[in-house]
Design a protein around this nucleic acid. Structure first.
Lengths: 354, 354
DNA sequence: ATCAGCTATTATACTATTATAAGTGTCAAG
DNA sequence: CTTGACACTTATAATAGTATAATAGCTGAT
């Protein structure tokens, strides 16, 4: 039966080359007609099977199966049963974002939601446009990276009524609704102190472009706080900003070591950068950590396998994604007393590169 | 004006802890009432501004702005103007998929579409479930990885009437509709021959789990074809399957070199594996490429920066994602004479690791 | 003065599902 | 023999935007 439709469709398509329309609209009405019940009964078989008599249910399910009917979620969403979680993410390449998206996706799937994903830059206009697009789909919940900059976008989010999770630095400005994240300040402070404790005297800091990114700002602030506590001043020349690529990391290593011959350790705000720097050391024949100590951030898969293994900050990004979705689903499920701020822990993974 | 709504919403939310509802439903009808025109006029301002007199248009836009109105795309999609591209992707971590998703996302965005992303495994049941979920949103087009296994899913896709792109091996079974990809057979054949031409005599092959993945199957077949042509037989013991992690690559290197002391090169089906193997060589103090040659697949960012730089197969995954979406949009735009198969080129990037 | 021809606007109806209220039918208790 | 309770089913209306056809208002030609 389905295979007949198959054939017809193929023909229809090749005839008019793109003007597609089903031969007979397949919906709860059509299924209901075929079974001889009201559309509402079919609807209930799909969403509240217990409210339908077993015999009727079986007949309906059989007809659904035979027709290859997939219920239209657009229509059900219009009645307020939206099952979309919207999210804006920065570029997936070379950052821990992919793992986070994986976590979000898994948790969404488990909860019966679909994930609408928009990639956007960290500029105010792009952010606002992305959020507008997502809100157009009337998502049940929204997940955003970093704090939302655009005031207009914040207002749109609030008046949409959807619960919002910002995955971000947990300290700082007032969240729109809920926050999930780590204290980037703490992580960077801890790593810098860790390096100092290991005997490094002059510690550089390399980050990817900081502008508009709360997390990176907090990491830098944490680094600064540690240096202050160590009594180190005038550290501006110990910092560089480079693009988030392995080449960027290599370049930063060169820049900093040329600037300061006595620099003995560098803390990179991302493993990708640190790994690039390690390769540059190999090229130069520099021993790690004897000539220079290298520390990263993220503990990506390769970090432990790297030669030498990378000392880094481990943050469970996958779990972060899951928790963000979980917060939304808990709220949607009417759970009371929901934490506004969820702080995940972190670890300083001490390996051999520093 | 918006800020007032802001305040009210915050209060409403904190009172009932989750039971959210807009104070007055904001839609084209509401905007129309405020401006004193028909809802249809508001609708046209949004989708066909040229059909509305400039003076009216300005008044409507002003009201939209003031109210912070975001049109409901669910409703417009129901009239057949769907703007969703659905896609099922394998896990984003440690594969080139992230770049591809980036490409898809960019192109979708440019064409005014949103991307609904579902992560699914390569099992038949999971695939079918993911496709069902996506079709429920009545997407304007669908993009799938590898060929769709499930016959039921294939039929559902066809009868949905949406154009479908499979990003996959370009040779092999009949596509549902269109294919974008490279000949994985050619790439693997070319790399194997390249290694042979460089003088390697005993070339191993390491891949991630092949089952259900056309691309990997074709790569292996290409490797086999090259070996045959080189007169090498009984190569089964030169092959290993490992998980797609750096540790997997290291493990494969150990397994193969223990099995065959004379193995002099290994072709990995992914850069991630190859990079892991290179680290293992460093740990063992093996010179690359003198002790063993290492080749990867994908040319990820790190490949060129690696020490030693990685010889690999370069496939433009970002472009692949873009082209897949472009095919869909061209078809939706009614373009005739659309290629059924789009084959992208590849390069053997000869660096120092082999 | 009338009417075609045009632009700008409006009224109606439709998309697919589902919340709600109203309606069946059956059985047991009064 | 009615009544109430219950399980199941159906009719109606609502969600929000838009295609379509109809209408209003205006210009210029007949």
């Amino acid at each position: 039966m389905i295979s007949r439709v198959f054939g017809e469709q193929r023909m229809a398509r090749s005839e008019d080359g793109g003007d597609r329309k089903p031969l007979e609209r397949l919906g709860v009405r059509e299924i209901a007609k075929r079974v001889g019940v009201a559309p509402m009964t079919v609807s209930r078989v799909l969403s509240n099977p217990d409210m339908v008599a077993p015999a009727t249910r079986a007949k309906v399910l059989e007809a659904i199966e035979a027709a290859g009917f997939v219920p239209n979620r657009l229509a059900s969403s219009m009645k307020g049963n939206g099952r979309i979680i919207g999210t804006v993410v920065p570029p997936l390449i070379n950052s821990g974002i992919a793992e986070q998206v994986q976590g979000m996706s898994d948790e969404c799937h488990q909860g019966g939601y679909s994930m609408l994903l928009v990639q956007g830059e960290f500029t105010t206009e792009a952010e606002e446009a992305s959020i507008r697009t997502l809100l157009g789909w009337r998502p049940a919940g929204m997940i955003l990276q970093s704090f939302v900059q655009s005031e207009v976008a914040r207002q749109l989010l609030v008046s949409s009524g959807a619960p919002v999770v910002e995955i971000s630095e947990i300290k700082g400005r007032q969240p729109i609704d809920m926050v999930v994240g780590v204290s980037n300040f703490e992580t960077a402070y801890a790593m810098t102190m860790h390096l100092a404790a290991k005997g490094y005297k002059r510690i550089g800091f390399v980050s990817t472009p900081i502008h508009g990114n709360d997390r990176l700002q907090q990491r830098r602030t944490g680094y600064h706080a540690a240096l202050s506590e160590l009594g180190i001043k005038n550290h501006a020349s110990l910092e560089v900003e480079v693009p988030i690529t392995a080449a960027g990391g290599a370049e930063a290593l060169v820049t900093l070591t040329e600037r300061h011959a006595d620099i003995d350790a560098i803390f990179f705000s991302s493993d990708t950068l640190a790994i690039g720097a390690v390769q540059e050391c190999h090229r130069r024949g520099w021993a790690i950590p004897d000539r220079i100590g290298i520390a990263g951030y993220g503990d990506m898969d390769l970090a432990a396998q790297l030669y030498p293994p990378l000392t880094t900050v481990k943050v469970n990004r996958y779990e972060m994604g899951r928790r963000a979705v979980r917060q939304l689903l808990d709220r949607l499920g009417g759970k009371q007393k929901l934490a506004t701020i969820t702080s995940l822990g972190f670890e300083i993974v001490d390996r051999e590169s520093a």
